[in-house]
């Protein structure tokens, strides 16, 4: 009974894509964080996030569990500290990353937003990440980024997930972001209709108090299903 439970919980963390040694390392980090090199663990998670789009969207959960385990075990925060500092390093290079690989850039944004979503300090968002996350999202709302469906898709997904929290901690920057999105939707030439659809949806989503009315939901999603 127990092994199957263990399998299930590790499945949740989507670590199957790692090689076996790394999987072992991560499993140990989840159970007994002080027995592994947590700096290495944070690097592994960061590196994988930049490569693996699926993982980058869910990596917050495994990070959350390791942070909790470490705090419980010895009141430590080595993992969180290293993870955040690594995130910061990548943040500084974000424009370069974007120039090199759109996919990596989109992965980075997914990851930092996922960390923002999962890691809390006394149930409150980490203040240190608020501006960086906004910086990333506002970058995604620039005209050149709106031309790439990949980036629009990423932007919209992040706003669906953390838009409400972000607005609560800093609403002026959310306004700033949405000015860009309205302009982009209304004025920018060359946007694909898919990008426009995504933008329109997120505009409605925020206007409805970060909720989509059932009719709006029907409009946006049943059509796609057909």
């Amino acid at each position: 009974m127990l092994p199957s439970i263990m399998e299930n919980t590790t499945d949740d963390y989507r670590i199957q894509s790692f090689d076996l040694d790394t999987q072992m390392l991560l499993k140990t980090a989840l159970k007994d964080p002080s027995s592994v090199n947590l700096e290495k663990v944070s690097d592994i998670i960061m590196d994988q996030s930049l490569k693996d789009q699926v993982f980058s969207k869910e990596a917050g959960r495994i990070c959350y569990t390791i942070v909790q385990a470490e705090a419980k075990q010895n009141n430590g925060n080595v993992f969180r500290r290293n993870l955040l500092n690594r995130l910061q390093q990548e943040f500084k290079n974000r424009e370069e990353t974007r120039g090199r690989s759109l996919q990596e850039w989109v992965c980075y944004v997914s990851f930092i937003c996922n960390i923002f979503d999962y890691l809390k300090v006394n149930n409150m968002p980490m203040v240190a990440l608020v501006h960086p996350v906004y910086d990333c999202l506002i970058r995604l709302a620039q005209p050149d980024a709106l031309m790439n469906e990949e980036e629009v898709d990423c932007l919209v997904l992040q706003l669906h997930r953390i838009g409400e929290q972000l607005e609560k901690v800093n609403s002026p920057r959310m306004d700033e972001l949405f000015f860009l999105l309205r302009d982009g939707f209304l004025l920018q030439e060359g946007l694909t209709s898919m990008a426009r659809l995504l933008l329109l949806e997120i505009l409605e989503f925020r206007a409805g108090g970060w909720l989509l009315s059932s009719t709006a939901h029907k409009y946006y999603y049943s059509e796609i299903a057909d």
Binding site: N77, R81, L84, Q88, M126
Partner: peptide, 18 residues
């Protein structure tokens, strides 16, 4: 300057208020 320390400090401040 580093985010790790910022969050640590943040956490301590909130703990103290709690």
């Amino acid at each position: 300057a580093d985010w790790g320390s910022q969050v640590d400090d943040d956490e301590m401040r909130r703990d103290v208020h709690r």
